[in-house]
Amino acid sequence: MSRRPYVRRISTTTWYLKKKRDLVHMIQELTSLFVGIYGILLLWGVKALSEGPEAYGAFLEALTGPLSLAFHWVAFPLVLYHAISWFNVTHKAMPIQRGEEFLPGKYIVGAHYVVWIGFSLVVLFVAGVF
């Protein structure tokens, strides 16, 4: 008879500009693009490696170019941000219950950092940094 529920439309392109929380979320989402690009880069490197020392050398050479360096200056902090923002919420996805209580989240988050740093050291060691 008289109902006419009113639907508030939101902009599908600019909605996240209205609230800081949403903006931060979108930035987090966008940083995943760079994670993806790093993934492609890695595959490219593996492919080059399989094609012999010459191809791999060309790949390494390409990485040192100014365009590549510029890309890394932008991408690396964003990927770092992406990783850290994920680490900080891992306890929500993977809670550990010991007896009645749950392990405080900081241990689960901390373990991620420990493993990350450990892996990084191994990679750096293999790469001959030490």
């Binding site: 929380r21 979320h25 919420v89 929500k92 996805a93 993977m94 809670p95």
Partner: peptide
Amino acid sequence: CAFADACSLVCPKHVDPASALQQ
């Protein structure tokens, strides 16, 4: 769910729905 975590931030009863969904 894109794990924006907004649900958990506003939940007045501290249910933390985001954690449930990720699990």
